[in-house]
Deep mutational scan, measured.
Amino acid sequence: QVALSRTQVCGILREELFQGDAFHQSDTHIFIIMGASGDLAKKKIYPTIWWLFRDGLLPENTFIVGYARSRLTVADIRKQSEPFFKATPEEKLKLEDFFARNSYVAGQYDDAASYQRLNSHMNALHLGSQANRLFYLALPPTVYEAVTKNIHESCMSQIGWNRIIVEKPFGRDLQSSDRLSNHISSLFREDQIYRIDHYLGKEMVQNLMVLRFANRIFGPIWNRDNIACVILTFKEPFGTEGRGGYFDEFGIIRDVMQNHLLQMLCLVAMEKPASTNSDDVRDEKVKVLKCISEVQANNVVLGQYVGNPDGEGEATKGYLDDPTVPRGSTTATFAAVVLYVENERWDGVPFILRCGKALNERKAEVRLQFHDVAGDIFHQQCKRNELVIRVQPNEAVYTKMMTKKPGMFFNPEESELDLTYGNRYKNVKLPDAYERLILDVFCGSQMHFVRSDELREAWRIFTPLLHQIELEKPKPIPYIYGSRGPTEADELMKRVGFQYEGTYKWVNPHKL
Rank of each mutant, 00 (worst) to 15 (best):
R254M: 05
R254N: 05
R254K: 06
D255N: 00
V256Q: 02
V256K: 03
V256E: 08
V256R: 04
V256A: 07
Q258F: 02
Q258N: 03
N259K: 03
H260A: 03
L261D: 00
L262S: 08
L262N: 07
L262H: 06
Q263A: 00
Q263F: 00
M264Y: 00
M264I: 11
L265W: 00
L265I: 08
L265N: 00
L265H: 01
C266M: 06
V268L: 12
A269E: 03
M270H: 07
M270V: 06
E271G: 07
P273F: 00
A274V: 15
T276P: 10
N277I: 09
S278F: 08
S278Y: 10
D279Y: 10
D280G: 07
V281F: 00
D283A: 04
D283P: 01
E284P: 05
K285T: 04
K285I: 04
V286W: 07
V288R: 03
L289Q: 05
L289G: 05
K290C: 07
I292Q: 02
I292F: 07
S293T: 15
S293W: 06
S293H: 12
S293P: 12
S293Y: 11
E294I: 10
E294V: 11
E294M: 10
E294Q: 13
V295S: 13
V295P: 14
Q296W: 10
A297H: 14
A297S: 14
N298L: 10
V300D: 00
L302A: 07
G303F: 04
G303H: 03
Q304K: 04
V306P: 00
G307W: 01
G307A: 14
N308E: 10
P309T: 11
P309F: 09
P309E: 15
D310F: 13
D310S: 13
G311I: 09
E312I: 13
E312K: 13
G313K: 10
G313Y: 11
E314P: 10
E314F: 11
A315S: 14
A315C: 11
A315I: 11
T316I: 13
T316Q: 15
T316F: 11
K317C: 12
K317Q: 15
G318V: 00
G318M: 05
G318F: 00
Y319E: 03
Y319I: 00
L320T: 07
D321G: 09
P323K: 14
T324I: 07
V325N: 05
P326S: 06
P326C: 06
P326E: 07
S329V: 03
T331W: 03
A332T: 05
T333A: 00
T333C: 00
A335L: 01
V337G: 13
V337N: 12
V338A: 14
Y340W: 10
V341A: 05
E342T: 11
N343Y: 01
N343M: 06
N343R: 05
E344H: 07
E344C: 08
W346V: 02
D347C: 08
G348M: 04
V349A: 00
V349T: 07
P350R: 02
P350I: 01
P350T: 01
P350N: 00
F351C: 04
F351S: 02
F351N: 01
F351Y: 03
I352N: 00
I352L: 08
L353N: 05
R354C: 03
R354Q: 03
R354S: 03
C355A: 12
G356V: 01
G356M: 02
G356D: 01
K357T: 00
L359Q: 10
L359T: 12
L359P: 03
L359H: 06
R362D: 00
K363D: 05
E365H: 02
E365K: 02
V366P: 04
L368F: 06
Q369M: 06
H371D: 08
V373Q: 10
V373W: 06
V373N: 08
V373F: 05
V373G: 06
A374R: 10
A374K: 10
A374M: 08
G375A: 11
G375M: 10
I377G: 07
I377E: 07
F378V: 05
F378K: 00
F378E: 04
H379I: 07
Q380T: 13
Q381W: 07
Q381C: 08
C382E: 08
C382R: 10
K383E: 15
N385D: 11
E386W: 04
L387K: 03
I389G: 02
I389H: 04
Q392K: 03
Q392G: 13
E395N: 07
V397N: 02
Y398S: 03
T399E: 07
M402E: 11
M402W: 07
T403A: 11
T403M: 14
K404G: 02
P406V: 08
P406K: 08
P406Y: 01
M408H: 11
F409S: 15
F409T: 15
F409G: 14
F409W: 11
F410E: 14
N411I: 15
N411Y: 09
P412E: 11
P412V: 09
P412Y: 09
E413M: 10
E413R: 08
E413T: 12
E414K: 04
E414V: 15
E416Q: 04
E416W: 04
L417N: 01
D418H: 01
D418W: 04
Y421W: 08
N423M: 12
N423R: 12
R424Y: 06
R424D: 06
Y425S: 06
Y425C: 07
K426D: 10
K426T: 12
N427Y: 08
N427A: 08
V428P: 11
V428D: 15
L430F: 09
L430R: 13
D432I: 07
D432G: 10
Y434E: 01
R436M: 01
L437G: 00
I438M: 10
L439T: 13
V441W: 01
F442M: 07
C443Y: 14
S445L: 15
M447N: 02
H448K: 13
R451H: 04
E454Q: 05
L455C: 06
R456A: 14
R456H: 08
A458N: 02
T463K: 00
P464Q: 09
L465W: 13
L465R: 06
L466N: 05
L466Y: 04
H467N: 13
H467Y: 11
H467K: 12
Q468F: 12
I469F: 13
E470N: 13
E470C: 09
E472Q: 15
E472N: 11
K473T: 13
P474L: 12
P474H: 14
P474G: 11
K475T: 15
K475S: 14
P476Y: 00
P476M: 07
I477N: 12
I477P: 11
I477L: 14
Y479M: 00
I480L: 14
Y481E: 02
R484T: 01
R484S: 03
G485N: 02
P486T: 00
D490A: 07
D490N: 13
D490M: 10
D490P: 02
M493H: 09
M493T: 12
M493F: 12
K494F: 12
R495H: 14
V496T: 12
G497N: 14
F498T: 08
F498N: 12
Y500M: 07
Y500N: 09
E501K: 09
G502E: 13
G502K: 09
G502C: 11
T503N: 15
Y504A: 04
